[in-house]
Structure formats: C-alpha cells, structure tokens
C-alpha cells in the first residue's frame, strides 16, 4: 500500500489555478471593454476598435522588445527614451535632407546601437539591468533633447499620414506593421535557437553554461533586438503625431513592462511569450482610449492608469502565488 509521494505541487487552490490559465490582461481587457461600452456609444464598432489597434501600435513594438528582456529576467527602463530619441532623430535626419529609406535605416541602426550599449554594459559588465537602463534612459533622453533643442520638430511627408491613417480593408498600415513585428518576435522566440537561449537565460542559466552557450552574447543580442523594436515603435509614433517630440516616449517603458507582466510573462523561469503581451498592450490601450472616450480629463488619466497597472501587477502576483505556480 504505497502512498503517492513527492507530490511537490502540494496543496493549491483550484480556482486560483484556473485564473492563471489565461493571461490576466485578457480578463481585464474584456471587463474594461464591457464597462466602457455602457458609457460610450458604438463602442464595439469596427471604427472604434481599429482606432484602439492603431494607437496601440507603438507600445506593441516596445512590449515585444520588453518581452525578450523580461524573459531574461531583466527590465529595460530605457526603451521609452529610445522611442523619444529615434523619433526626434528621424525628423532631424529628414530635415537635414536625408532620403526616406536612408533615414529609416539610420534610425533603426541608432536603435540597435542604443540596445548594444545597454547589452554591452549588462552582458560584459554584469551590472544590475535596472540601474544600467535607468542610466542610459537619462543619456538617451538627454541626447533627444539636445538633438531638437527641447522643441517639438516637424517635417511634412505623405508617408506619415499613409502609415498612420490609411490601410487595406480598414486595417491601417501601422497596425499591419505592428502585427508583422509581433509575428517576427514570436518566430524568433519559438522557432529559432536564439529564442531558446533567451528562455534559457531566464529559466536555468546553468544549463546554458553546461551547453557552452555564451550568456553575455545572448544578452547583448536580446538588448539589440529590443532597441531595434523601440526604434520601429518610435517611427510609428512619429507617423501618428507627424512630428518628433523629445518627451513622446516618456513612461512608455513602464507601460511595456506592465503589458508584458500582465500578458502572463513571468520575471522568473523564462516563462511566457509574446502572445500574451498582445493582450497586455491592448488592455492598456483600451483603458487609455476608453478613459478619453468616457470623458475623463487627461489630468486624471495618468494617475488612474498608474494605479490600475500597479494593482494589476499586485493581483497577478497574489493570484500566481495562491495558484502555486511559483514557490
């Protein structure tokens, strides 16, 4: 009569486990949408939903990059200022007379360089990620301010309007670009050896060492990718506001962290992926757009969004602990 032993999953509550099945962002998004639909007319109309998708595009890019970094158990706090820097840089380059394709290439290169800087200091210097990216956040922000002399700078081009407003069968190009990038990120994370290494760093770095995989090189590559995604996000944002604003990316990095965490990606064990992040981003955008639609003054929005994000992260942590996902 041998008893079942080594039940290391122990006692956990079933209800809480069910809650952890889908990313918390999904539930919150549905609840928020139902809530807003009471106050705003035609909330579920495609015209409204497509606006939400369009506005979410830049944050989506950041969150894709942030997903990689969080899978590696870090958080990149400099992504928002990379957005500011690259968007200002783009307009600046265009104003200097660079052609569109060349300037886009240069901006992406700039994003990659920002990522490289982060990656080198984290990967080779072995410093805590948050302090490194907090430092570079200020460096990039300062560079953006210097580039444009603290002013919003403008450039006229049809491409901006086209990317942000036009599209095929009701889906704007910016949404298409953002989903293409999400697709690429998904592919990278799930179908390539690079993705395996990223998950390995978060899950069990020992295994990487044993397999002879360089942790620092993978870290650097991850940060470069995040930098490139932030640059793409910066350009998408630029298209929407048709200008380069040195403060346009402020706070986006934390929205991205929140989106990733609420999307079910864990800061431990390399669990999760870009699929859940989509819902995280959409949830935040539903909230932001919804507050405006319902008529909440923009003065109140930052505090409300901050509180919702913080509460959501806290709840997520509690649910996960109760559900016994992590000891």
């Amino acid at each position: 009569m041998r008893k079942k032993v080594y039940d290391n999953k122990g006692i956990r509550s079933k209800g809480f486990r069910l809650l952890t099945f889908a990313p918390p962002a999904l539930y919150m998004m549905i609840i928020l949408m139902i809530l807003f639909s009471f106050f705003a007319d035609h909330y579920f109309a495609w015209s409204n939903l497509s606006v939400i998708l369009r506005q979410a595009a830049p944050l989506m890019m950041l969150a894709c990059g942030q997903t990689l970094i969080i899978l590696m158990q870090g958080t990149d706090l400099s992504l928002g200022s990379i957005v500011s820097l690259t968007s200002v840089l783009w307009i600046w380059l265009l104003n200097l007379g660079f052609g569109m394709p060349v300037s886009i290439l240069l901006v992406i290169l700039a994003g990659a360089l920002c990522g490289l800087l982060n990656g080198l200091i984290v990967g080779k210097g072995l410093l805590p990620v948050f302090i490194v990216t907090l430092g570079t956040q200020n460096i990039f922000k300062s560079a953006a301010l210097l580039l444009c002399g603290s002013q919003t700078i403008y450039y006229r081009h049809d491409l901006f309007r086209m990317v942000a407003k036009e599209g095929l069968s009701g889906i704007s190009y910016s949404v298409m670009i953002s989903f293409l990038m999400v697709g690429i990120t998904w592919f990278l994370l799930n179908q390539t050896s690079f993705g395996m290494k990223i998950r390995g760093i978060g899950g069990n770095p020992e295994a990487l060492t044993l397999a002879g995989v360089s942790i620092s090189r993978t870290t650097i590559m991850g940060f470069i990718y995040a930098g490139i995604m932030a640059a793409v996000g910066g350009m998408l944002l630029c298209c929407r506001i048709e200008s380069g604003n040195p403060n346009s990316g402020n706070g986006l990095e934390f929205s991205a962290v929140a989106a990733v965490l609420l999307g079910g990606t864990s800061m431990r064990e390399g669990r999760g992926g870009v699929g859940g992040t989509i819902f995280g981003v959409l949830m935040l955008q539903v909230l932001r757009s919804g507050l405006t639609q319902v008529g909440v003054s923009s003065i109140y929005q930052n505090a409300i969004i901050g509180i919702v994000i913080l509460t959501a992260i806290i709840l997520d942590e509690i649910i996960r602990r109760r559900g016994g996902e992590e000891d």
Binding site: L127, G135, S142, L146
Partner: peptide
C-alpha cells in the same frame, strides 16, 4: 539638456566601478 547625459554616465561609471 546635457545634465541628464552627465548624470547617466556618472551613475553607470560608479556602479561599474563598484562591481569591478
């Protein structure tokens, strides 16, 4: 506008120095 950059570099340098 240079201040942010200087502070960023200073903080990175000092933290690096500590770890190094």
């Amino acid at each position: 506008n240079w201040q942010g950059m200087v502070h960023g570099i200073v903080i990175l340098f000092v933290v690096w120095l500590d770890v190094f």
